[in-house]
């Protein structure tokens, strides 16, 4: 049977059927006051403080999954990442791009035969699932604590290897045991 679009058309209501009147008055003032009730309730409560973000930040849990970090070996300074692309394979958002290259005696970047010549994470696509961290056979990539990831331009959210290797400019406070 061919589909008949007439049969069950959903009626779309885009506004009050009847403008003005008592209903209109209520919508203009009653609803507003109802919303303000929450605000006033908070005003009345004592002892609760608003965190003055961004001057003040709520400490995150140690296992908080924020912006990624790439690591180096502390002793040799070589990059831990060998550019194996396993993180890229694991990533459900397909936001990691790795282009590997070969280490040479003159230019040794990582400990293995290969290193990541290009390592990019598109943080505007990342869903912070942490799979990349789990996939990495060398603990080269971990989820960091930064969560302040807004920018004026999407392409600025593509983090390069240098950005991911660098110490973050400002450390996100970490929650201590008893907090």
């Amino acid at each position: 049977m061919p589909w008949n679009p007439e049969a069950d058309v959903v009626e779309v209501v885009r506004g009050p059927r009847k403008a003005g009147g008592a209903g209109g008055l209520y919508r203009a003032f009653g609803e507003t006051l109802r919303g303000l009730k929450t605000t006033f309730n908070q005003l009345a409560r004592v002892g609760v403080t608003t965190v003055q973000y961004p001057e003040e930040k709520i400490p995150v849990f140690p296992r908080f999954r924020g912006r990624h970090r790439l690591h180096r070996f502390e002793d040799t300074g070589l990059e831990k990442c060998v550019g194996c692309s396993l993180c890229a394979a694991a990533c459900p958002a397909d936001c990691i791009r790795v282009v590997a290259a070969e280490n040479t005696p003159e230019n040794r970047v990582s400990a293995g035969e290969r290193y990541a010549a290009v390592y990019e994470i598109n943080l505007s696509r990342c869903i912070f699932c942490g799979y990349c961290e789990i996939a990495c056979p060398f603990d080269a990539i971990t989820m960091g604590h930064d969560f302040e990831l807004s920018d004026y331009n999407r392409s600025d959210l593509i983090f390069t290897k240098e950005m991911l290797l660098a110490e973050p400019a400002e450390r996100t406070p970490l929650r201590t045991e008893d907090e």
Binding site: G83, C84, A88, V99, A100, E102
Partner: peptide
């Protein structure tokens, strides 16, 4: 082809 790509790339 050495280290140019992985099968999923």
């Amino acid at each position: 082809y050495r280290f140019r790509a992985r099968p999923w790339d």
